[in-house]
Design a protein around this nucleic acid. Structure first.
Length: 1153
RNA sequence: AGGGCUAUAGCUCAGUUGGUUAGAGCGCUACACUGAUAAUGUAGAGGUCCCCAGUUCAAAUCUGGGUAGCCCUACCA
């Protein structure tokens, strides 16, 4: 055949795979042609797949874990686009929160107090806005470079007035919503929070977790003795009329003892009453404490001492004791005791306070197993006390009698009502100035209290105790846990509904939804919204000073109207919102603090109302995004309705109680709806060793380096294929390299292979003339079947939000089936001979495989796929456009996902090809063992077979097998041959159930079955077996029959398949082997000399006995294989010395003829 | 402290309703192939399936109890 001398390069050919270059090329293409925009707009608006972007904060740099998180987001959006949905992806920025305030203050070198003094409010505000968008460009770069498609041009930004207004609207909705008991969903209450008296502000847990805040300090601890009151309930605790029974409770904060109202015990903990003497004055006393803690305070050796008072003058007195009784914690609950330090008391407290109550949090690790409980100074304390109905203790509060003022004021001092001795004293020594504490006479309040207890015979043990205690990051002084006013969302009232709706959400992985999230929902507490901050959404609630009247504002319009009234009432001079016209654009006046704090409203009764100074938790901001991103309900009502709830969201698993929760909570409480239907929570990205990435460890991976070195696709693919997104990923560039070489390298080679020959043959795909699959070869139909099996599997996994399984299915297909089998066996069809039907079939089949695989891959590997799609379809684009066929699309991302096609799947074909592959593998392994190179033809391969259907199936793929393993004929050995020896193995699965205990014996029995017995079973369908006196009937399914090795043959077996190879070499076979060697050597020479693939040549081979037979018998074969016009043996062949085998080297001359 | 995840080959991971030779890729060793060639194939070595106990004829798989690593939440009287 004569091929065109200069072939037209329709398909681009490449020297090397360069993924970053592909990224750049495709990125440019996407940008120029607005492919992302088209991928959204060309899909019908009514058929939406809704995705919510969890807003990142741009005041930190993006890390490699963001590539992971965003890949997960991206692939499902792209996938559903290909399935025909319109997938709007509005970007967003989280802009509020403490970290931003801290950063601004650090950069400006100011504190909160300086705002309005050293810098103007405007400046501060502007600084926050700038800081929060500091790395926006970097984020945008990452977004583009990694191929994350999200709308960056119209993001929602949480600090914008429109956004804030929507949040207000939601808050108002909660404010107006009432529980069945008539309680508002937004209410003011108070909780125990970390509080820094020195700074005069509450602290968040975030602040407490800042480095260095928890410090090891030595505090004075005391075990106090609480005297049990004698009454009907406690009668059984007294053994004699004058017995003094005390309960021991330990504290490291003696200053909270005056506020004690209860003692908490563990209901399941065992307690003992011990008769002994008070350690400081030797008075007889009976003490109650946890049994497990006994040994910490009593020396067992002293139990046998006579029961008499010890000498208090002794330094380390031996104190006798006796264990008198044992109680469970439950039995103690309800006991009343005398107030320990009666500075303040009420009749109500006497009646209902000073009680033993139960609490699950009590342990016996230290202390006495009894927890001194002062509700105002401990969150746990408050909770258990409330549950048990214990009244609060403190200075009467007229406004809310049930919540008296605490005995410690906001400066950290005891209130005056504590009397001369303690009133006005700082409860912590650290709050005093150094001058005061350096005085030798100075005694801390804790110490004074302890001494008082000792004196009054109320102390059991006083000692220094070293523990970790949180400190204020600003003042470095210890924090107090202190009751502070807060606004709450009554989430607890909606918890059943939240749990119920949660069950309708598809969580990936499921355990996060049922476990981490679900269990947490069941124990949901109210949501503390208040933050004493500056840069955030202001709480839109105005109150009169006495709290008797208040208003919650749900829109700027509403606010403006009230301001007008306020102006009329003379509380304000003018209305900054006067020019506010509903809805569109910014409102002109910033809704942030402190501008908003200047707004004074007038109450219905004509009183002045000022805003509650709190901001709201930033988590409420982000949970509001489904509504606020559209400025709903003020605008975009239709858009919102089409985009709620989300079909899909994805974030890190750390967002479970963050964004996942706030979305859910707001959705359920405000709309009685889930906010999302499917959620993927991805795990952490760790370093190679499995350590968390952190700046201090220096193991942080720069995403930009990674992307620009290895390309986005390899990085993305690696991250998703290596482990499920919800498992932690041990990030390693070796893994990316592996992905690059294995998957993309293979595909790239496959493409180049295709392009090379398609260019030579001038082959173009014609969508109008697809060859009937029935006309194609077995191999073609097989790979097509595999391909459509892959389509089905891929879609199933993606629909289940299992991207890792989807990715692995593709990898397996590309490597195992397409490259390693189909291409390998088909290579010859492409370069051999002229265009004919078989060659056409090969081209069409390979084309389809590449195109479909590539399309499946495009969600995960958007760049490479589009690159390949464009390379492959460039020659036919115009025709496709003209005919309006599927390949008219300029980008794979605009195409429609290939549909599963059961008609193209042939499982029987897949099975027999599997046989072929395994038979070849076995035959090759025999060759390998026998050191018989594949180029050496062999005469015969034998297959012992057990059933005729197997023969029929293998016959279909016989030619394939023979050519692959280079063997002349295939012969089956059946029962009839008499050569076949069978053996049987028990089928545990079918037999196990019915045999039970006899299973082991049965296995032995079956293994011993003779050939005849097996045959008889196969013929009769059953066989009797008697074991341990029971007889069983075996059927054919109960046995797994295989064949024994054939004596005298070279044999290999694998799972029931046995292959034997005839390894004797005839002269003709050897000559043919040499001929093939010669072909190989001549081809090498052609290549060394850079001949064109189509050049015709002439060949002279040096005369040698080793090649004589080969050239004589197989000369024509050699000539045709190497495109030689002439082939001759010559005594004087010039040319290159070539090693034919270990012992023979000869000259071969090859020239273009 | 509570909740969750993970533990299988040197590394990264599969492993169906429990079923008898526990797999793949990478790496390593050896070989083969050479019209995919900065490729490819085949084979080999490599396992206390984290530990202990239980259920069962049978456990990597189910149950209970531990251990280790990690995450979230809470924070200690």
């Amino acid at each position: 055949m004569v091929k065109p001398l200069v072939h037209i390069r329709m398909y681009r050919e490449f020297k090397h795979l360069n993924l970053p270059a592909i990224d750049a090329e495709i990125l440019q293409f996407w940008q120029d042609e607005k492919i992302f925009e088209k991928s959204v707009s060309q899909r019908p608006a009514g058929k939406s797949y809704v995705f919510y972007e969890g807003p990142p904060s741009a005041n930190g740099k993006p890390g490699i874990h963001h590539v992971m998180a965003r890949t997960v987001k991206d692939i499902f959006c792209r996938y559903n686009t290909l399935k025909g949905h319109r997938v709007e992806r509005k970007g967003g920025w989280d802009t509020h929160g403490l970290p931003i305030e801290l950063q601004v203050e650090k950069e400006l070198g100011i504190t909160k107090e300086d705002i309005g003094k050293k810098i103007t409010v405007d400046e501060y505000n502007q600084a926050c806005r700038n800081t929060v968008m500091r790395y926006k460009d970097l984020w945008d770069d990452l977004t583009r470079q990694m191929g994350y498609w999200v709308d960056l041009d119209n993001p929602y930004i949480t600090f914008e007035n429109d956004y804030i207004e929507s949040v207000w609207w939601l808050l108002k909705r909660l404010y107006d919503k009432q529980t069945t008991a008539g309680e508002s969903y937004l209410y003011k209450g108070f909780t125990i929070q970390p509080y820094s008296p020195a700074a005069g502000t509450g602290l968040s847990t975030h602040e407490l977790n800042m480095p260095g805040c928890y410090k090891e300090v030595s505090d004075l601890s005391v075990i106090a003795m609480f005297k049990v009151r004698r009454n009907d309930a406690s009668a059984s605790f007294f053994d004699s009329p004058d017995e003094d029974v005390r309960i021991l409770a330990w504290t490291t904060t003696p200053w909270t003892l005056p506020s004690n109202v209860a003692l908490t015990v563990g209901p399941r903990i065992e307690y003992v009453k011990v008769q002994t003497y008070s350690p400081y004055n030797a008075m007889p006393v009976s003490v109650i404490l946890a049994k497990d803690r006994l040994s910490a305070y009593f020396n067992p050796e002293h139990e046998s001492l006579p029961m008499e008072p010890f000498d208090t003058a002794e330094k380390k007195p031996a104190i006798p004791y006796r264990i008198v009784k044992t109680y469970s914690g439950k039995e103690l609950v309800g006991l009343q005791y005398e107030q320990l330090l009666p500075f303040v008391a009420t009749p109500e407290l006497d009646a209902n306070g000073f009680k033993v109550i139960g609490g699950d949090f009590v342990t016996t690790e230290d202390g006495t197993g009894v927890v001194h409980t002062a509700p105002y100074f401990g969150a746990d304390d408050m909770r258990v006390a409330r549950e048990a109905g214990i009244p609060m203790i403190g200075i009467p509060n007229e406004k809310s009698p049930e919540l008296p003022f605490p005995l410690v004021d906001r400066q950290g001092k005891f209130v005056e009502e504590m009397g001369d001795e303690f009133g006005g004293r700082y409860v912590k020594a650290e709050y005093y100035s150094k001058e005061v504490t350096s005085d030798k006479e100075f005694k801390s309040t804790d110490l004074l209290l302890c001494l008082k207890l000792k004196e009054e015979n109320k102390a059991f043990k006083i000692e220094k105790y070293v523990h970790n205690y949180p400190h204020c990051w600003r003042t470095d002084k210890p924090v107090l846990y202190y009751p502070l006013d807060s606004w709450f969302v009554r989430a607890s009232a909606a918890k059943e509904r939240m749990a119920e709706l949660n069950k309708t959400i598809n969580w990936q992985p499921e355990s996060t939804g049922t476990g981490r999230f679900g269990q947490w929902l069941e124990n949901l507490q109210d949501w503390n919204l208040s933050r004493s901050r500056y840069w955030g959404v202001p709480l839109p609630i105005w109150r009169t000073e006495d709290g008797s009247e208040e208003v919650c504002i749900g829109s700027v319009e509403e606010l403006s109207k009230l301001v007008d009234q306020s102006v009329s009432a003379g509380f304000m001079e003018s209305n900054p919102y006067a020019h506010y016209h509903n809805h569109v654009g910014d409102k002109g006046v910033d809704l942030h603090r402190p501008y908003i704090d200047d707004i004074v409203l007038v109450s219905p009764s004509g009183k002045e109302m000022r805003r509650e100074l709190d901001l709201i938790d930033v988590w409420f901001d982000s949970g509001s995004m489904p509504y606020a991103q559209w400025h709903y309900p003020f605008e975009n009502e239709e858009v919102f309705k089409n985009n709620f709830p989300a079909d899909f969201i994805a974030e890190g698993v750390d967002q479970t109680r963050g964004w996942f929760y706030t979305l859910h909570a707001i959705g359920v409480m405000c709309f009685d709806s889930v906010a999302y239907k499917n959620v993927v929570s991805n795990g952490l990205v760790l370093d190679k060793e499995g350590n968390k990435m952190s700046k201090s460890k220096g193991n942080v991976v720069d995403p930009f380096d990674t992307l620009s070195t290895y390309g986005a696709d390899a990085t993305r693919w690696y991250m998703l294929s290596n482990a499920s997104p919800w498992d932690n990923l041990k990030f390693s560039v070796d893994g990316i390299l592996e992905t690059r070489n294995k998957l993309f390298g293979t595909l790239y080679n496959t493409y180049n292979f295709f392009a090379l020959y398609a260019n030579l043959d001038g082959w173009k795909h014609n969508e109008q003339k697809v060859m009937d699959y029935k006309k194609r070869s077995e191999l073609d139909r097989w790979i097509i079947s595999k391909l459509y099996s892959l389509v089905a599997e891929y879609r199933k996994e993606m629909d289940n939000y299992e991207p890792t399984k989807a990715a692995r299915a593709i990898e397996n297909f590309v490597d195992e089936h397409l490259s390693n089998w189909y291409i390998r066996l088909s290579r010859r069809r492409f370069w051999k001979g002229e265009m004919n039907e078989d060659k056409e079939a090969a081209y069409q089949t390979l084309w389809e495989c590449l195109m479909v695989t590539n399309q499946l891959m495009c969600s995960l590997a958007p760049f490479f796929s589009d690159w390949m799609y464009r390379n492959m379809t460039a020659p036919i684009r115009e025709a496709a456009k003209a005919n309006n066929t599927p390949l008219r699309h300029e980008s794979v991302h605009l195409s429609d996902l290939t549909r599963p096609d059961p008609a193209k799947i042939d499982t029987a074909l897949e099975r027999r090809m599997d046989y072929a592959q395994r038979i070849c593998s076995l035959a090759l392994s025999i060759r390998k063992k026998e050191k018989l190179r594949v180029r050496q033809p062999l005469q015969k391969v034998l297959l012992p077979v057990l059933n005729s259907s197997f023969i029929k199936e293998v016959d279909e793929v016989k030619e394939l097998i023979l050519s692959e393993i280079n063997v002349k004929e295939l012969e089956y050995i059946t029962d009839a041959s008499g050569l076949l020896k069978k053996k049987a193995k028990a089928n545990f699965k079918t037999l196990g159930g019915k045999l039970g205990k006899d299973m082991k014996d049965a296995a032995a029995f079956i293994a011993e079955l003779s050939n005849e017995q097996i045959n008889s079973l196969e013929q009769n369908g059953s066989l009797e077996m008697s074991l341990n006196g029971t007889s069983y009937s075996l059927n054919t399914e109960d046995l797994i029959v295989s064949t024994e090795d054939l004596p005298g043959w070279k044999v290999a077996t694998d799972e029931g398949l046995t292959v034997a190879l005839d390894v004797t070499l005839s002269e003709a076979l050897e000559a043919e082997g040499v001929a093939r060697d010669l072909v190989n050597r001549i081809q090498n020479i052609r290549k060394d000399k850079n001949f064109n693939v189509t050049d015709r040549i002439s060949v002279q081979i040096e005369q040698h006995p080793a090649v004589k037979g080969a050239v004589e018998q197989f000369g024509d074969y050699i000539k045709s294989e190497v495109l030689a016009n002439s082939l001759s043996l010559s005594d004087s062949a010039a040319g290159d010395p070539v090693e034919l085998n270990d012992s023979v080297t000869l000259n071969i001359q090859v020239e273009v003829s």
